[in-house]
Amino acid sequence: MTVQPSQFEIHPSSGIPIYRQIIDQVQALIVGGHLHDGQMLPSVRAMATELGVNPMTISKAYARLEADGVVERVRGKGMRILRPAVDGSAAQRLKQLYPSVESAIVRGRQLGLSDKQILDLIRKVLRENPL
């Protein structure tokens, strides 16, 4: 079972460049256990055709993933996942998560939710997404 281009969800009109969306989703697939080391990413051509985006954009995303040590280029075969991308100290990883949590909390306050309600929701989401 390898990953298919149709597993990627691209929003061209988002403020986030498409190559970043692809990088983020590859990393999410790895973290979520849907992509394991040794598996191949879809070819640039397959991705470009299926997602309807410029092939150079896909190449760029793959090149960045390669530079970040997430995948390696296998001659004549494509990009292979290297290892689960758990990089950096716990503090660094927490720092990465900080903005997402912050914006969720700000949104919660805007919706008039109490701290307890927000915390309960986070616990519920954690329960619904077991490791």
Binding site: P12, S13, A48, T49, G52, N54, P55
Partner: peptide, 30 residues
């Protein structure tokens, strides 16, 4: 768009296009 994408992938040609539809542009423009 997919015809253009095919062409670009295979032949590395250059394209200039004007448009008002920014979502198309976001898909294929470099």
């Amino acid at each position: 768009l997919s015809t253009l994408i095919d062409r670009v992938e295979v032949e590395q040609n250059t394209i200039l296009f004007s448009t008002h539809i920014t979502s198309d542009l976001e898909r294929i423009a470099s």
